[in-house]
């Protein structure tokens, strides 16, 4: 088995995450799909680190995790705030910012 299989898996997971962002309407699920995409890229980074033989890829993956954690905190806070005012977590309901 070649190492590139991890990359294929990464691509497939990323695509599924993207499709989830497009298709799901529950803000929390959408958010989770975003996390899935981030994880897919992390897998690619780790695989590249293995291919190139240095740890930079793993470092990047580490930073992605940190940033993702920060993002989750703020994003969930926003979702809670929206839910508090609109009693809904559907991303389609929060559509006032438009033409």
């Amino acid at each position: 088995m070649g190492v590139q299989n991890y990359l294929y898996l990464s691509a497939i997971l990323f695509t599924i995450g993207a499709a989830g962002v497009l298709l799901r309407r529950n803000a929390i699920v959408v958010f989770m799909c975003v996390e899935l995409m981030l994880n897919a890229t992390n897998l690619a980074f780790v695989t590249f680190a293995r291919i190139h033989g240095n740890l930079d890829g793993q470092i990047i993956a580490f930073f992605v995790m940190v940033v993702a954690a920060a993002e989750v905190v703020v994003g969930l806070a926003i979702i809670v705030t929206i839910f508090r005012t609109r009693r809904s977590t559907s991303v389609d309901d929060a559509n006032l910012l438009k033409y």
Binding site: F31, V46, A49, R50, A61, F62, V72, V73, L76
Partner: peptide, 22 residues
């Protein structure tokens, strides 16, 4: 893939903390 640190962090931070938050 020779990333034990990341693997553990993934479980602790992501599967643990972040998913709990979700």
């Amino acid at each position: 893939q020779s990333g034990p640190f990341l693997g553990i962090v993934q479980i602790v931070v992501y599967t643990g903390a972040v998913m709990m938050l979700f």
